[in-house]
């Protein structure tokens, strides 16, 4: 199957994000961007650049909050969580590259709450796949996509950003 070009997909995501905040433009100027390692951080950086939002963006590694620890152990290649702003009372724009089961976002929200009580979390995902296992839905999606059985999609980068298919 042909995969979409990431830069045009990012354009779509940025304009959908702007549209999502069309009734509350001042809220968009006050959001704090948080990307999920690794792909979500690249997408968050692109959104910050296009919408001229403050940087550096926050980054989250949800490795210690995963729910499959007793099956998989700790994932290798952990990155650092860095939130260079207060979470308490903030409107967080939480960004990931791909959402499927929703378990990563569950873990991310649990981790965020350990840093404070955000006023609101808006969830943005470049790609949404079917297969949700938790009642978590993104507010803004670049592209809804279905994959053939046994395949998954991954964002690679950062230069250039590309989508690649992998066998599970």
């Amino acid at each position: 199957m042909t995969l979409p070009d990431v830069s045009s997909l990012l354009d779509v995501l940025v304009s959908k994000t702007r549209a999502h905040f069309s009734t509350m433009p001042e809220a968009l100027q006050n959001v704090q961007l948080v990307g999920l390692h690794t792909g979500g951080v690249w997408v968050a950086e692109a959104i910050a650049r296009e919408l001229e939002l403050p940087r550096p963006v926050g980054t989250l590694d949800i490795g210690f909050w995963r729910d499959d620890f007793y099956h998989q152990g700790l994932a290798p290649n952990r990155r650092s969580t860095s939130l260079p702003f207060g979470i308490e009372g903030a409107h967080i724009l939480l960004v990931d590259d791909v959402i499927m089961s929703g378990r990563t976002i569950r873990a991310a929200m649990n981790e965020l709450f350990d840093f404070g009580r955000p006023e609101r979390i808006t969830l943005v995902s470049l790609i949404a796949l079917p297969g949700r296992e938790l009642p978590i839905q993104p507010d803004v999606v670049g592209l809804d996509l279905s994959l053939p059985a046994g395949q998954r999609i991954k964002l690679t980068g950062p230069d250039p950003l590309m989508l690649t298919l992998k066998e599970t």
Partner: peptide, 23 residues
């Protein structure tokens, strides 16, 4: 090396309000 890398990432927990992880 994996133990050292894992320990390094645990050091960051000291920055959070709740200095715990649920592992």
């Amino acid at each position: 090396t994996d133990i050292l890398d894992t320990a390094d990432s645990f050091r960051g927990i000291g920055d959070a309000q709740v200095k715990k992880v649920p592992l």
